[in-house]
Simulated assay, not measured.
Amino acid sequence: MTSGARRVARVVLLDPDDRVLLLHGHEPEDRDDAWWFTPGGGLEGDESREEAARRELVEETGITDIELGPLLWTRFCSFPFDGRRWHQDEWYFLARTTRTATAPQGLTGLERRSVAGLRWWTSAELLATRETVYPTRLAELLRTLLDEGPPCEPLVLAPEIV
């Protein structure tokens, strides 16, 4: 982990049809500067990454009935957002759910100003989209996950510095 980086847990949430749930984010002051990303966020207090993954999923999607699976990927990223630079050490967990209805329950003020909604994506839709998706290799990573199953050891993704 890069020293001083925000510790983050993210969830690759799949439904029974192997669609992945992504949130549609944007700069708070510029809705045209937009992207898609997996649910998740920073750890609070002394919670574990798994606890943070579950909490963030409930806050951002309202989905509580999940089967949290293995750690899939880790990555370091650094990006500008809301007037400052964020440095994050992210862990991506696999999760499955039978529930596809969403009802965000605990968005922060910043999230309410910067999340425009969410949707379920098929692997084919992700591969075909021209919209920005983070991590940038998500379409390829999801296809491999669906074809081969979770990796034996978590993959360390290349750092993304935007």
Rank of each mutant, 00 (worst) to 15 (best):
M1R: 10
M1C: 15
M1L: 14
S3A: 15
S3K: 13
G4C: 10
A5C: 09
R6D: 13
R7F: 13
V8M: 04
A9E: 06
A9I: 04
V11I: 02
V12H: 03
P16Q: 10
D17S: 08
D18W: 10
V20D: 03
V20A: 11
L21E: 11
G25N: 04
E29T: 15
E29F: 14
E29A: 15
D32K: 08
D33M: 07
D33Q: 14
A34S: 09
A34H: 10
W36M: 03
F37G: 11
F37P: 12
P39Y: 02
G40F: 02
G40K: 03
G40S: 09
G41W: 00
G45Y: 02
D46N: 13
E47H: 05
S48P: 08
R49Q: 14
A52Y: 07
A52C: 12
A52G: 13
A53T: 13
A53I: 01
A53P: 04
R54F: 08
R54L: 09
R55D: 10
E56A: 07
I63E: 06
I63F: 09
T64H: 06
T64E: 13
D65A: 12
I66M: 00
I66G: 01
E67F: 08
G69C: 04
G69N: 00
G69K: 05
P70A: 02
P70F: 01
L71D: 05
L72Q: 05
L72K: 01
W73V: 03
R75I: 08
F76W: 14
F76I: 02
F79G: 01
F81M: 01
F81G: 00
R85M: 09
R85N: 07
W86H: 13
W86R: 05
W86V: 02
Q88A: 06
E90F: 13
A95D: 08
R96T: 12
T98M: 02
T100W: 07
T100A: 05
T100Y: 04
A101G: 05
A103M: 09
P104F: 03
Q105M: 07
G106K: 00
G106S: 02
G106N: 03
L107T: 00
T108R: 07
T108H: 01
E111S: 06
R112I: 08
R113W: 09
R113F: 01
S114L: 00
V115E: 04
A116C: 03
A116N: 10
G117Q: 01
G117D: 08
L118W: 12
R119N: 12
R119Y: 11
T122A: 05
R130K: 10
R130Q: 08
R130G: 14
T132I: 09
Y134V: 11
Y134K: 03
Y134R: 05
T136H: 15
T136N: 14
R137V: 11
A139V: 11
E140A: 13
L141V: 12
D147M: 13
D147V: 11
G149C: 01
G149Q: 02
P150N: 02
P150R: 00
P151F: 10
P151R: 00
C152H: 14
P154R: 00
L155H: 12
L155T: 15
A158R: 12
P159Y: 06
P159S: 04
E160F: 14
E160V: 14
E160S: 06
V162R: 15
